[in-house]
Amino acid sequence: MSEDLDKLISDAVEKALQGDMDVINNIEDRVTRSKAKAALVKAKRLAKAAIAEDAPKPEESKAVEALPAELSLTEKVSAVIAKKFPNTIESDEENSHIQMKGKNWFEIAQYLRDNPDFLFDSLQCVTGYDFGENEDLEVRYNLHSMTHNHAIEIRIKTDRNDPKVPSVEKVWRIGDWFERETYDMYGIVFEGHSNMTRILCPEDWEGWPLRKDYEVQETYHGIVVPKVKDGWE
């Protein structure tokens, strides 16, 4: 039975490598389907590595052309980044975003901004995200290109007790204020930022308001913070 499954998976992967995703998508059993998709990703990675070895000196744009055209922008970008900065992509299973490690984020950001195929010259939004109490924090970047009119989302996870992410203030100038706001709300420290102070809350406010386990402080300079009214519960 498992040999049939293996054969089914390898057939589906073969078809998908040639560009026909229907065979994988039509597999009824969810476990088998996900196994097939994982095998497909592995096969693609091996294929890219083979192409890289064959070509004498591949430039970045050539490597992009060598990939099948049906790949979405997210997959293209993550493929290029995985080649140039190895060991930073965590997973590119989802099509909506790229999950990254925070190690080389500054260099990757510069590369994304300057590469003529992508030209992400505008940082639209930086959002902090809290997975829950005692879970990790995450920073999400929405990038957009004015010239090519395409957009991607990049997510970087960081630990809750010591959250640190490299700053992209020098790459996109608006990173300055966006990162200060994320620091103010979540406590994520952006390394390399020139002025890591609170922007919306007062400078001596305690706590990180948008975290899920935030408790409002009782008094602030003698003023009682939660509002109370007589005769009202």
Partner: peptide, 11 residues
């Protein structure tokens, strides 16, 4: 310097 009208709408 901003933050004088911050009402934490997101929270």
């Amino acid at each position: 310097i901003i933050g004088y009208l911050h009402r934490c709408f997101e929270k």
